[in-house]
Every structure is written in structure tokens, then in C-alpha cells.
Design a protein around this nucleic acid. Structure first.
Lengths: 336, 336
DNA sequence: ACCAATCTCCAAAACGTTTTGGGAGAAGGC
DNA sequence: GCCTTCTCCCAAAACGTTTTGGAGATTGGT
């Protein structure tokens, strides 16, 4: 491993000068700088990250923890989200540290502590925000910068990105009612999740806007997986008052719900309408193609990272909260 | 931030003793050890990672780079794979560094160099191995430990996990022929990928075992996405000699292919059989449910990490190559 | 010819650990 | 009572950077 000392020795100058030449300080002669840069390049010198971190007291690393409820954590949302985080971080020469833990578990807490205490990361991205989310409190307390996708209900300043769910659901429910639906069901997620809270609220105001009386029997929850959506849809379809349309908290849930409908011999689109949210799964290629509220996951991840980096650098943010309007993609699953 | 010095000062002992007490050396009195551990706990002391790395010359971090061909990198395989890597690493107190770059790009090379030169990681996991893969050569040259999912054709020692594709395809093609199929098509991936190479070879020997003459017109390639599978299937279905069955290199490709078949008015399962590979996508809930060769992605990731950690520690491996037999899940997409 | 200002450069300190190479005192053997 | 062996502890070095606080040339003004 070649160190800064090797470069300095070869050039017969001090390591100070090498360091400053590479860092672009202006108290080093143009000629020397070029020489240093060239030599460092030739020798294949890259600063040792640990040493640099130790001295600068920052790790140039951001962290993200996957909310893995179960080992089979297959959700395309997250592959795209991580790709977005990784790309944006790399573009600013930051690294991305990833771990996985079940939401609200001891393991999750342990990772947060390890990262925060050891200053392993300069900041964190959190998503799947919960209504009362200790993570946000903890990070605030630790004075560790963070951004989140979806705000919590805690009285903390929110910095991050939020999907404009209200508007999205107005569009979606409007579309469904224009197709003649009035018995519109909702399959949500765990009620302590912000996304469920928001989407359920959006669902209710969508109904209200269409002057449809809400029916509690048409509301159920699942766990954001196809299997959960499948089971939930079966529950709905087994009831006396069957839904004519189902809006689902995410695409995976909708995929499961479509499966259940098919099993019942219902033709999705004609006999029952089903819609998702995310636009990230294979929604364009399901059978039938799935109507969904598409959100640009990759872009959102990039936005979050850039906000976080500004926070870390103490630079001012253009806006503390970015609202993203989801895009209603109408496909065959909701048009007869 | 409390440091080891703070702990030592409070207890009026040397930092050496604190360090050794916490690290479990046996040259510290039982009484002292307990006191130190308790105090450190109470003070919320966690060793500074950078300092520790600098001194120990290892980062206790492993790296993985996502092969993001395009921004929309939605593939549930990778969310599960990363969850597996993250969990296994965390179980050994290692961290997982993730980045993203298009395969075989300058960006990819830059990340590998940055991580290798700066010793930012102690080892790497690589997948989507290519037949001639410079990454493996580079890492070998840098003497940086790595494990890979799927071997390359390079004359390098292979340490990692390999799916027993030959056996899997024998099972799958056997299943298809027993259903009366003989015009079996193959939708692969880029031919320089090891997985395409292996699966194509498996496909060919599967045909051979069933005494079916291979037809080049029934072989095409896509890019592992639903969209690619959709386009490829359209090409196949537009031909004079139409396939009666299609085996796809992964589940996403199969999902796209099913979409194309549906659009043609074909009933998948009855009019045409379609099978995937991965078992990770929402294959159980597609319409119809998809026959696939299931591989335990989460487990494989864990195996890889544990092999890598042994490599890093210089410990002997039980086996250098682990073969995983994929599990044929027969579902409605291949049974009429 | 002198002083001040400007350019370049550098030695040494600091970041927070782990490891090396003992050293003091108690216990044990004769 | 002396020598040896444990037991428990510690001071100092080292890891590879960045930053601090100048110091020696050179230039420019008068």
C-alpha cells in the first residue's frame, strides 16, 4: 500500500505539501502541484480512508437500514431505492453503508447505536417512517444529521421527501368512481406506518370527494407483501358486501390481491378493479397490467442523499421538504 | 463523544487496561474487567471505528456493488440479496458497504479502485459474474479477498457459491417434455454473463437428454428485465415456428414473456408454457402462478458472507465452492 | 538598501485506537 | 531469605492523514 509518505519521499518534499497539493490548497506552487498529482497518480496513491476519517472527524459515509420484516425480503422498491442512494452518494464521493434489521427491533436499535456512537456514518437516510418513530428522536438527540422519506407525527423538524398522497388518491379514486365504482375497498399496511396513515387518509378523502359513504367492512390491512395482499383480498371477497374495486397500499399487495381475484374466477379490470402504489414492481407486465400511482423511487433516493449531504456540510437547503406528486398510470386492471 | 481516554481517566487506570479489558485479554483482573465493562457501558462508550481501523489495518467492512444497468433498477432479487449480505455481515460485527455502477463501466472500475486502494473494505462480494471478468483479475492482483456468486471462465481459483444449473435445467426440461412439449424456446441474458452461459448450456443438455434437436430460431436474449422478456417473447411469437414452451433466464424475463403471450390471446399454461428462474420475484402470485427454479437467495448471500469472512481472517474454509441445487417449483404456468 | 508583503514550503501536533515490551509486586519453591 | 514465576498493570509507539503556526525566500515599494 503506498502512503502519502512514499509520495513525499520520492519527490523529496514534505508530506504536508503533498497533502495540500492534492487537496487543492493555494499555497503550493502550480508546478509542484502538478508534479505531485502526476506522481501520486502514477504510484497509485489513494488516501487511507481510516486515517483521513480519524483526522477529519467525519467518515464521508452515509447509512441506511433495510426494514427486513422477514428473511424473504423481496421488494423491488428497495433495490431501486438503494441503487439511487448509492449512485447519488458516489457522485459526491460518499460511501453508503447498508444494514438490515426488522423494524422496531432490538437489532435495529443496536445498529443505530453502533453507527451513531462510533461515528461510523456522517448521516442517515430513514424510510418506512412510523408515526411514533424512536429512530427520529434518537438521531435528533445524537445530533446526527438525517433525512427521511415520509414524516412522522413527532414534533420534530422534518427534513426529507414526502409523496403527495392526498393528491394521488384523489386522482385514483376519481378515476375509479368515473368508472362507476362505489364499493371501493382499501388494503393497507400496519397502521403505525406513516404510509398507511397517509394512504388511508387519502382514501377517505377520496371517497368523501366522491360523496361515497365509507364502509369499515371494506378496509383491511396486510404486510406490504404479495402474500399479505392475497390473504387480505380473500378476506374482502369472502364478505357479504363485496368490493367492486380495491386500492392497495403498494404494488406487491395489489399483485397478491389480483391473484386472489383470479382464483375467484373474477376477471380483473372487468369484474373487479385493482390498483397499486409504487410503480416500481413489474406493474406494467402483470396480468392484467396494473394501474398504479407511480413514484420516481430512484430520483427520490437521489434527492434524499443530496439533502443529507448538504445537512452534513452545514450548507443551507433550498427546501426542507420536497413534495413529490405521484403519477397515476391507468392500465387495464381498472378499466373494464 | 466519549473516548477510551475518558473511561480511563474516570477509573484512574491506563487506557491500555481499558482497551485490553474490553477486548477480553486475560492479563486483566476479573474485578477490573467487570468494572471497566460496566463503566464503559454506562458512559456509552463505543470504540471509534476510524481509529480502530487505522491501527488494526482492517476496516471490518465488506463491499458489494450493484450491477445497475439503468436507473430503474427494480429487481427483487437484489433486495433479498442485500438483506442477506447485511444480516450475515452484521452477525459478525462487520458492516456492508454498497455502491452501484453499470457493469463493466468506468464508474465500476473507479469504485473498485477506491475501495481497494484506500482499504476501505476488507473484502468484496461479486455477482453477475462475467465470463472474462476483469473484476476478479483485479481483486486477485490486489490480493483483496473476495467471493463470487457464479464462477468465471478465468483460470483463477474460484471461491464462492454456484447454483447447480445443469441439474435444475434437466429437471425443468424434463418436466416440460413430460407435458408433451418439444418446441422449447430459451430467452437468455447477455451472452458474456456466466448465468446466461450456464443456463444456455443447461438448456441444451436438457434438450439433448430428451432427444430434442435444438433449433437456433428458438433461442434469443434479453436483458433480465420484464420489458426485455416482453420484447424477446414477441420476437419468438412472431416467427414461423412458434414455441410451445419458453424457459427464461430469470423470473422478471418470464413475467414479461407472459405478458406478451397474454397480449397474443394465448392462455399461459394451456396454450403455451412459460418458466422462470429465481423464485424471488412475486412468482407465486403472477397470473398464472409461475413455474420457476427457486434458489434461496437470502441463504446464498449469507453463505457468501461467511466464506468471505473466513477468507479475511485467514481461517480455513470447509469448502471453497458451495453448490446449491435450485428447487423446481411447478405452478400453473407450465401445466395445461 | 531596507522593510513589508507575498509565495512556498515544512516540522510537529493531533485524531483515538491497539500493540509492544516491559515492570512492580505478590506468591511459591527451595 | 533468595530466586523464580505469576498476576496485573502501564508508558510509549504506531497507524496515515490533516491542520496549525510559522520560517525562509523572493518580490515590490520607497
Amino acid at each position: 500500500m503506498t502512503t502519502i509518505k512514499d509520495v513525499a519521499k520520492l519527490l523529496n518534499i514534505s508530506i504536508t505539501t503533498v497533502s495540500r497539493a492534492l487537496d487543492g490548497y493555494d499555497d503550493v506552487a502550480q508546478e509542484t502541484r502538478e508534479l505531485v498529482i502526476r506522481t501520486a497518480q502514477e504510484m497509485g496513491y489513494t488516501p487511507n480512508r481510516a486515517a483521513r476519517q480519524l483526522r477529519k472527524q467525519r467518515s464521508e459515509t452515509i447509512g441506511y437500514i433495510l426494514p427486513t420484516d422477514k428473511p424473504q425480503f423481496a421488494d423491488a422498491f428497495y433495490s431501486e431505492f438503494i441503487a439511487g442512494l448509492g449512485d447519488a452518494a458516489a457522485a459526491s464521493n460518499f460511501d453508503l453503508l447498508v444494514s438490515a434489521a426488522p423494524p422496531d427491533s432490538a437489532a435495529e436499535k443496536a445498529i443505530y447505536q453502533r453507527w451513531a456512537q462510533g461515528r461510523k456514518v456522517d448521516g442517515l437516510v430513514v424510510n418506512r417512517t412510523r408515526l411514533q418513530d424512536w429512530r427520529l428522536q434518537y438521531l435528533s438527540g445524537q445530533k446526527l444529521p438525517f433525512v427521511s422519506l415520509e414524516r412522522s407525527l413527532l414534533p420534530l423538524e422534518f427534513i426529507g421527501v414526502e409523496t403527495d398522497i392526498a393528491q394521488g388518491y384523489l386522482d385514483l379514486i376519481g378515476h375509479l368512481t368515473s368508472q362507476g365504482h362505489s364499493r371501493i375497498a382499501y388494503i393497507g399496511a400496519a397502521p403505525d406506518l406513516k404510509i398507511d396513515h397517509d394512504r388511508y387518509t387519502g382514501y377517505r378523502s377520496g371517497l368523501e370527494a366522491a360523496s361515497i359513504a365509507p364502509d369499515p367492512a371494506l378496509v383491511t390491512r396486510a404486510d406490504l407483501t404479495p402474500e399479505g395482499g392475497y390473504q387480505a383480498a380473500i378476506r374482502l371477497l369472502n364478505q357479504a358486501t363485496q368490493p367492486s374495486a380495491i386500492v392497495c397500499v403498494n404494488d406487491l399487495t395489489a399483485i397478491g390481491a389480483m391473484h386472489a381475484a383470479h382464483e375467484r374466477g373474477l376477471k380483473v379490470g372487468r369484474d373487479i378493479a385493482i390498483a397499486g402504489f409504487d410503480g416500481v414492481a413489474d406493474s406494467a407486465h402483470t396480468q392484467p397490467p396494473l394501474t398504479t400511482l407511480d413514484q420516481p423511487v430512484y430520483t427520490i433516493a437521489g434527492l434524499l442523499v443530496n439533502m443529507l449531504l448538504k445537512l452534513i456540510d452545514g450548507k443551507p437547503l433550498d427546501e426542507h421538504q420536497v413534495r413529490i406528486k405521484p403519477n397515476l398510470l391507468i392500465r387495464a386492471s381498472t378499466v373494464g
